[in-house]
């Protein structure tokens, strides 16, 4: 009992610590601000530990953890949409000065996408997953991933082209 409990905690700690930068990037892409991303990461970590026994194969750990994080982001997004009008929080945070290295214009463009399209783009670029890997995480066919990615990137390309044109004028 003592050994298995300790071993369980150690295995989880290793997986979670290794995955946490990727998970945080994903959460930031999904939620658009560091505070919510950090909350989602913590919520996902605690939930994952509670259900860690259900993880059958060690190699399935990253996809499993990613799925839990995505759900935590959906929950976080829903809680936020009940309390904060969309767009308001982002403007306030920008005024407070977010870290400069992050491409906030792009992160905010992501926030305008429908949830499933945003998840697909974030998994593709922020976690560097392939189309079949995204399909496995989201439990949809490869074709669905491709059509979501196509719709999302076309829209983002249009938005960014427009904002560049507006910036030039």
């Amino acid at each position: 009992m003592l050994l298995s409990e300790t071993a369980r905690r150690e295995a989880f700690t290793t997986l979670f610590s290794q995955m946490s930068p990727r998970l945080y990037r994903t959460a930031l892409g999904m939620l658009g601000n560091p505070h919510d991303a950090s909350d989602a990461l913590q919520e996902a970590g605690l939930k994952a530990y509670r259900y860690f026994d259900k993880l059958q194969q060690e190699e399935a750990g990253p996809a499993w953890l990613t799925r839990i994080l995505i759900n935590a982001c959906y929950d976080q997004g829903r809680r936020r949409s009940r309390t904060t009008p969309i767009g308001l929080e982002v403007e306030q945070e920008e005024a407070g000065g977010l870290p400069a290295e992050t491409d906030w214009e792009l992160v905010q463009a992501l926030q305008t996408l429908p949830e499933e399209q945003r998840t697909t783009v974030v998994l593709r670029f922020f976690q560097d997953l392939t189309v079949p890997q995204i399909a496995a995480v989201m439990n949809v066919p490869d074709g669905t991933v491709k059509s979501r990615l196509h719709a999302a990137l076309s829209r983002m390309r249009g938005q960014l082209m427009q904002s560049r044109r507006e910036g030039v004028q």
Partner: peptide, 8 residues
């Protein structure tokens, strides 16, 4: 963008 995200 992914590479530039602050991990603070």
């Amino acid at each position: 963008a992914a590479a530039g995200i602050e991990l603070g």
